[in-house]
């Protein structure tokens, strides 16, 4: 094997090592995050001991660990991975580094669904109604994406424009609702849209994790096609054996599904879907076979970090994860981008 191939294989190995390291760091952070919280009955050490069965905790301690902290930490990992992967997929297949899971209109659809549920009087109790509605409406958006994909000569730009249109329309309808809503409903809607990882219960999170884990291999399957699409436009793709319009439609449906499964439960969480793929690219380049897993682990780590800081820094006050992501992630992201300017 000649030197060029050898170097390539070595570089690939290094990249895989990086991904594995970030993954390990995320898991370690998860264990640490489990030990952090505002309860005075549990400190980090005893939490870890109870988790690993070295100590038996009281009912209250077990409830806190397994029904409050564990679902939250798991949701951060899975949700972060899902949104980051969705973002990476979308950026690649639309050939545009500025898109994110919130671009396609899926998030606006979910918000509209939640608004319906809240304002049409399905009140505080099972916010399952809000979740179901949010998911249902985002599926409608997925349907629109599929219809669009089946039309002839639809370009990447078309999807972005339709996403913008859906966002505007949903926004207008939600505004109309808020006009007629009561004080209470307005508050509920506002708080829903902040995004929070504490909403899904343990069983919800297990379901979500299962769904996302099932969808991940599908994401990886598109890696080669994404490499082609993201590099050079439709002509280039066809000449490499990739049908741009059906591929694009399928990948976008996948991203939309991954996004809606998460935000139906958590509310709107932005930033991670945009930033995690970019951060990954800075580290690992644009080969989607590595970019997808790398984005996923970066997404998990970001989400976990932001959520943990948001709930501990001013405990017991919780700063919504979406806000923390922007506060921590934004400047860090800027720093990374500035570092990389002019470096080839």
């Amino acid at each position: 094997m000649d030197s060029i191939s050898k170097k390539y294989i070595e570089d690939s190995r290094t990249q895989v090592t990086i991904i594995a390291s970030v993954c390990a760091a995320t898991l370690l952070s998860a264990v640490i995050a489990m030990g952090l919280g505002s309860s005075s009955t549990l400190d980090s050490i005893s939490t870890i001991k109870i988790m690993f069965g070295l100590e038996s905790g009281s009912d209250l301690q077990s409830a806190i660990i397994w029904e409050l902290r564990f679902p939250r930490v798991l949701m951060a990992i899975i949700g972060g991975a899902a949104l980051a992967t969705a973002g990476a997929l979308m950026q690649g297949c639309l050939g545009n580094p500025l898109v994110s899971p919130l671009t396609l209109g899926v998030a606006s659809g979910a918000a509209l669904g939640a608004a319906f549920a809240i304002v049409l009087g399905i009140s505080i109790i099972p916010n399952l109604a809000i979740v179901a509605n949010a998911f249902l409406f985002s599926l409608v958006v997925v349907g629109i994406i599929i219809q669009l994909g089946n039309m002839r000569s639809v370009s990447a730009e078309s999807y972005i424009l339709v996403g913008i249109a859906i966002t505007f329309i949903s926004g207008a309808i939600v505004s109309t609702f808020t006009y007629f809503a009561t004080d209470a409903q307005l508050s509920q809607l506002t708080h829903w849209s902040f995004g929070s990882l504490s909403r899904p219960s343990l069983s919800n999170v297990v379901w979500i994790s299962g769904a996302i884990i099932c969808l991940m291999p599908s994401a990886m399957k598109w890696a080669w096609d994404l490499n082609t699409l993201s590099l050079g436009g439709d002509d280039f793709a066809i000449s490499s054996g990739v049908d741009p319009s059906s591929t694009r439609r399928n990948i976008l449906v996948l991203s939309a599904l991954m996004t809606s499964i998460v935000i139906a439960f958590t509310g709107l969480i932005g930033f991670v879907g945009l930033a995690a793929p970019h951060m990954s690219r800075l580290v690992i380049g644009n080969d989607y076979r590595k970019l997808i897993p790398c984005s996923a682990v970066f997404g998990s780590f970001l989400m976990l970090f932001a959520d943990t800081v948001g709930r501990t820094i001013f405990a017991p006050v919780i700063i919504p994860v979406g806000i923390m992501l922007a506060i921590i992630g934004g400047p860090f992201f800027m720093y990374l981008l500035l570092q990389n300017r002019g470096v080839s």
Binding site: G95, L231, N286
Partner: peptide
Amino acid sequence: VRTSFSMSVFD
């Protein structure tokens, strides 16, 4: 070939 993303030549 227009591109918004960067890959190495080998890739």
